[in-house]
Nucleic acid binder design. Structure first.
Lengths: 222, 222
DNA sequence: AATGTAATTGCGGTTTTCCGTATAAAACTA
DNA sequence: TAGTTTTATACGGAAAACCGCAATTACATT
């Protein structure tokens, strides 16, 4: 079993609950921080000791506090950690249910497990820790099917995502075309932008572009 | 101090943390449920005893479980509870930060306190319980200013809200006008709908109607 | 290199949105 | 009540979005 685990979670009523679970799994040393920055500091520090941290359990969203922060989300923390200790195991523990975000975490950020906060979270967390110990990838029960059914969504590439973001930010079609030209992105003509929007409307079954951004937000694509 | 408190919360790692807080406040009996339906049952049952539940602490969002549910959200639970025991004190404990939703809870559902999950949640929960005991309304520190700054939003009447919902549902301008005509709502001409959208764009500082629905969703208006 | 397929682009026309303005209706004021 | 202000509606024109088509370009396969 892991010797040393770090928990990054700003909800302090959760701390004890998580610690108890980990203790039952015979993990000796459990440390807890409320800020991403502190998590990164502790991880860096422990690298130079004879027993570095082996597992990080982190939330995704951290509320603003009274302190200044350089890392403001679990996502950023994960990126930073991968630079300093790529082999560190990571379990994400979050209420985030938007499948786009979760798929991204697993496929791009290569996290080892995703446990969704909710009814079965204790049980799922135990399963996750055990799976990660065996170098397996784990996502909590209710997500397994969702991830498969979300394959259509992953058809939307990064340009679709950018396009949706720009729409939600209030740019008009020709402004988006200009933006694509400036950044030297493919399919930058106004007509191509229009076609891309149209494709997305069909894919997401949206009647209007207003509905399209509503759906995109709902599914966590932006 | 309250004698009997019920916690409705589906995240079981939170249970112990909350219970500890309430114990420190000298609350004797703390009960916990993971389903809204169970909460309502317990409240109903306790009404016929000599010591009914005095305070309900409830989350807003409850994940689906393996059981069938009739009440699926804290919002619904609150409505149901107000029917059977209107004098019951209610503290909402949730990550919901969309100011529209929170204002609605306080003003319409008349909850006694709102504590946002996050960094200072323990401290805020203690404050909330003490305030509610004194028949005061309490919302956690970081929300106080937000609620004031959201006064502009409350300028939007129910027709604005409906309009935004219809936009997000993919209706075109003239379809919205037809809808308003069917329902016999005021300002039902196409031009009036257009002007209303324009007013909202100015109010929310949106360049396009796409951005308008994005902002409306973000602020919890729809 | 040649060929076929798919993607990109520009153009033109239609529909929808956007907005000014004028008139009519409603609400408000004295 | 008469006058004033606000709100609703209709009309028209400009801008933007929408969409089909055809020409061009990019890409893959042989």
């Amino acid at each position: 079993m892991f010797q040393k685990v770090l928990i990054a979670e700003d909800q302090n009523t959760i701390h004890k609950g998580l610690e108890n679970i980990l203790k039952e799994l015979n993990i000796k040393e459990v440390d807890t921080v409320q800020y991403c920055d502190d998590a990164l500091l502790k991880i860096k520090a422990s690298l130079n000791t004879e027993s570095p941290i082996e597992l990080l359990i982190t939330d995704l969203s951290f509320k603003e506090g009274h302190r200044d922060r350089t890392l403001t989300s679990g996502q950023e923390l994960i990126q930073a950690v991968m630079d300093v200790q790529p082999e560190l195991k990571i379990i994400v523990f979050s209420v985030e249910h938007r499948i786009g975000k979760i798929k991204n975490l697993i496929e791009v950020s290569k996290v080892d497990a995703y446990v969704e906060k909710g009814r079965e979270e204790s049980r799922e967390m135990i399963k996750a820790v055990r799976a990660v110990l065996k170098d397996e990838i784990y996502y909590s029960h209710n997500l397994a099917q969702l991830i498969r059914s979300a394959d259509d969504i992953s058809q939307t590439d990064i340009y679709d995502e950018l396009l949706l973001q720009l729409l939600a930010k209030g740019l008009k079609r020709n402004q988006i075309a200009s933006y694509f030209k400036e950044k030297d992105l493919p399919a930058r003509s106004l007509r191509s932008i229009e076609k891309r929007i149209n494709k997305l409307k069909i894919l997401f079954d949206a009647n209007t572009s207003e509905q399209l951004v509503a759906i995109a937000i709902d599914r966590g694509l932006i």
